[in-house]
C-alpha cells in the first residue's frame, strides 16, 4: 500500500508525490497542498480523526478519508532539508 498523509505520525514530515483521487477539493490545492511541497502532521484529533497538518505554511485540518488520497514520500528524521 502506498504511503499517504494519513500514515504520518505526529511531527513526521513528507513530500507530497501525487493525488490518487482526481476529485480532491480544489480548496486543498489552493491552500498549498500541491505535489512537491512538504507536509507535516501537527496534531491528531482525540478520536484519531480529523488530522491537522501544516503544508506550505498553511495549517489545515482535514479528514482521514481525504488524507488517504494524498500520496507522499516520508522524510526520514535523520535527513536534513
Amino acid at each position: 500500500m502506498e504511503t499517504t498523509v494519513a500514515h504520518l505520525k505526529r511531527g513526521q514530515r513528507g513530500i507530497i508525490k501525487e493525488f490518487t483521487e482526481n476529485l480532491l477539493p480544489i480548496k486543498l490545492l489552493e491552500l498549498g497542498c500541491l505535489p512537491g511541497n512538504i507536509v507535516e502532521l501537527v496534531q491528531v484529533a482525540p478520536l484519531n480523526d480529523p488530522i491537522y497538518i501544516n503544508v506550505n505554511g498553511s495549517h489545515i485540518a482535514i479528514r482521514r478519508e481525504m488524507a488517504l488520497h494524498i500520496a507522499l514520500d516520508i522524510i526520514e528524521d535523520n535527513v536534513v532539508i
Binding site: K27, L28, L31, P50, H59, I60, A61, I62, R63, M66
Partner: peptide, 11 residues
C-alpha cells in the same frame, strides 16, 4: 452539496 472538510487552523 459537496461534503468536504478542509478547515483552516488560523494562528
Amino acid at each position: 452539496s459537496k461534503s468536504f472538510f478542509v478547515v483552516e487552523m488560523p494562528n
